[in-house]
Design a protein around this nucleic acid. Structure first.
Lengths: 312, 312
DNA sequence: CTTAAATAATAAGTTTTATTGATAGTTTTT
DNA sequence: AAAAACTATCAATAAAACTTATTATTTAAG
């Protein structure tokens, strides 16, 4: 049994296809096939059921694949130990960021980070919390930035900042006269929402504590961008809620329609999340340092109340 | 990096000697030297400091060795998974037993075990609790039988039986007239003890709750066997305490000098202990089943009070 | 039902790697 | 100072991993 063989097994388990797995492993298909077979021979057990298309993993195979993940992870850790010893911060580092955080946060820290750690090849991917979690487990991401708490067994969460929710209320709206918003004022029926899959949407829904199964019949216009929501609100189609950082880039005219919540303001907790195995932890720590340093100035709110980002 | 290389590193770390490590790994010394070098080259860091004799492990080396242990252990687990799947119970299994348990317990279960699991090659080693713990961590033992609780972080303890302490009191002794013993009657100064290193000794000392630093000036005759202690007691040099199972093999004349404790009798907890990683867990479970089945008949005491085996 | 496409297994040959025996270079012990 | 113990290096060999080419098998398409 070799580590390489285990990596091949993992590739096949992931892609359910020897040819593709071989490509991803940068070897030819026979090489991969033979090595997987060799391992199966050595263990005298089948890991994959090749009779079905696409290939399936046998019951024992699943256990072996899990264990193989462990081993390969732990093996990668050795390079990690050496890097840490040398104070080396470099290599590929893949970071996932949720869409509602991406456009505001990324520009704030990216330049500083790549300047301070020029040897790190940062690969940034925008994806939903759901995919983020999956990819962190699979090892396709080294870390993610998402709204928390998620309370996933195998993930660590390190809060970066607390971002208050800010109301965007058009003049015609019933709440326009109020100086401050209160969560209980909100009616889910007239709050414009991001489309399904965005955790900010779920956060807002949780905040509104509306009936779980509210009807959306008369309102199908959901958007993926806050800009759209703001524009819809301006058309008197309802109010909406924005994360604080998104309010900074509004023009003066629109800023007048912002309404803050009474303290403690509802807020989302935005955290750096990564696998408990702490692979590439030095880079993760470096990233955290950079973001914390920059965010400290931008967000000064203290008295907030965290809203869960989960669709419970 | 290969698993083999990591195993070589572990062998060198253990024996502090490339030549010996090579022998233990069943390869020649150049093979092992070259592979270790190759790994060091790949990581671009020195694991061993060869300038000192005997060889020492560098600071990073220590971390790498630890991680290597993990990896090798986790890798062995894969065969384990397969064995479990197949219901296969076999292969080498090394069991350590403390000296005070060995002569009474081993004959009780050995025959049954090798008959029921003929494919297991049982290797039994008598050793002190201290060595048992060390060897379980190093992976030199698959399991051990010792007095518990030990509360070692990386070990699991599964109690096998509770063995009461029984007094052996010669007719001339001040306690001979009493029908039952009480712990508070005991005076550490006239209780004959096993020599240092036996945990039963520590158990008895704990029971006597004598001053921790009692003097042994006038009594240096410590022995490694209960037989000696009994004979010394017969010479009126004091009383002694025996584990219950040891009392079964005394002759009739000696049995008359046995004095049991009042309930709850002090007792030692004898457990099967093994590494938390649960390597070869099927064999361990099989062993436990056999011993439990046999011991159930032999030891029927219920109301006991466990004495710590540790030299606190 | 036949054919084409996709995919895995097999075969033969090549490259790479692991291992060995012999030996040279150290350090430690006597 | 010599012997012993130990590690590194070298050249040769055995083993393995990998490649290209090909075959076999399954799935999808016509």
């Amino acid at each position: 049994m070799t580590i390489t063989q285990l990596q091949y097994v993992l590739a096949v388990a992931e892609h359910k296809n020897f040819t593709l797995a071989a490509q991803k492993s940068f070897v030819t298909q026979p090489t991969l096939s033979m090595q997987v077979q060799k391992l199966e021979d050595e263990l005298d057990i089948l890991i994959f059921d090749r009779s079905k298309k696409p290939i399936t993993i046998t019951e024992v195979g699943k256990k072996i694949v899990n264990q193989a993940k462990n081993i390969v992870n732990e093996a990668n850790r050795i390079q990690d130990i050496v890097d840490q010893e040398k104070g080396f911060i470099g290599g590929d580092y893949t970071l996932g960021i949720i869409p509602t955080v991406m456009p505001t946060l990324l520009p704030m820290f990216l330049k500083t980070f790549i300047k301070r750690y020029p040897k790190v090849n940062l690969i940034i991917k925008e994806q939903s919390t759901e995919n983020l979690i999956k990819n962190l487990q699979d090892g396709h991401l080294d870390a993610g930035i998402a709204a928390t708490p998620l309370e996933i067994e195998y993930l660590k969460e390190r809060p970066l900042y607390y971002e208050p929710f800010v109301g965007y209320v058009p003049p015609g709206h019933r709440l326009y006269q109020q100086p401050k918003l209160k969560p209980e004022d909100l009616d889910i029926q007239d709050v414009l929402l991001l489309q399904d899959g965005h955790c900010f949407r779920d956060g807002v829904i949780n905040l509104c504590k509306a009936p779980r199964n509210f009807q959306e019949e008369h309102f199908r216009l959901q958007s993926g961008s806050f800009e759209t929501l703001v524009n819809l609100a301006d058309e008197d189609l309802g109010m909406t809620l924005l994360p604080y950082l998104n309010t900074l880039e509004l023009d003066e005219q629109k800023k007048e329609k912002l309404k803050y919540f009474e303290a403690p303001s509802p807020a989302r907790e935005v955290s750096l999340i990564y696998h408990k195995s702490e692979l590439k932890i030095q880079i993760t720590e470096a990233l955290r340092d950079v973001i914390l340093g920059i965010v400290r100035g931008a967000i000064a709110f203290q008295d907030v109340k965290i809203v869960s980002p989960l669709n419970k």
